[in-house]
């Protein structure tokens, strides 16, 4: 697939218009997971618009973003950084062999108090 085609698909999947961003950085000012991100919410918006998709596809932030939607809630321009992160994350985990958590690992990594809701949502976020 052409790079430009891939970027277009990711943008569509995000359902948000990165061009509306006025580069105020409020998303990153609000983000509770900022310290655990290599690429920050405002940079996702900027990179997707500049077509720098490779940086995003390899970002650690894809799996540390909490999808808490604080950035979306506070954006003064109606842009949804979290939706761009999600769109890129889907691009990664939908690729063959890119599942982040294997089912057989589960018994080892979970304790008996973990609610199903957490397991299901984690699987949906990290696996296809």
């Amino acid at each position: 697939m052409e790079k430009s085609e891939q970027i277009k698909l990711i943008k569509e999947r995000s359902g948000t218009d990165a061009k509306k961003c006025m580069k105020c950085g409020k998303c990153s000012g609000r983000c509770p997971a900022y310290a655990d991100m290599d690429i920050k919410p405002h940079q996702f918006v900027s990179y997707i618009e500049k077509g720098e998709i490779d940086k995003l596809l390899n970002s650690k932030s894809l799996f540390t973003c909490l999808t808490c939607f604080a950035c979306v809630e506070r954006c003064p321009r109606g842009v949804a950084p979290a939706a761009i992160i999600e769109a890129v994350r889907q691009e990664v985990i939908r690729m063959q062999g890119e599942n982040r958590v294997k089912a057989e690992e589960i018994p080892e990594i979970v304790d008996d108090k973990i609610p199903q809701q957490l397991l299901v949502s984690m699987f949906r976020k990290y696996n296809k």
């Binding site: 409020k26 000012g29 604080a70």
Partner: peptide, 26 residues
Amino acid sequence: KGMVGKVYKEGDKLMVQGSDLINDEQ
């Protein structure tokens, strides 16, 4: 250069949490 995301109180202080886009930090 950057916008504030949250102002909250911790003890006697108002904590102003925001982006510093030039220094690339929160």
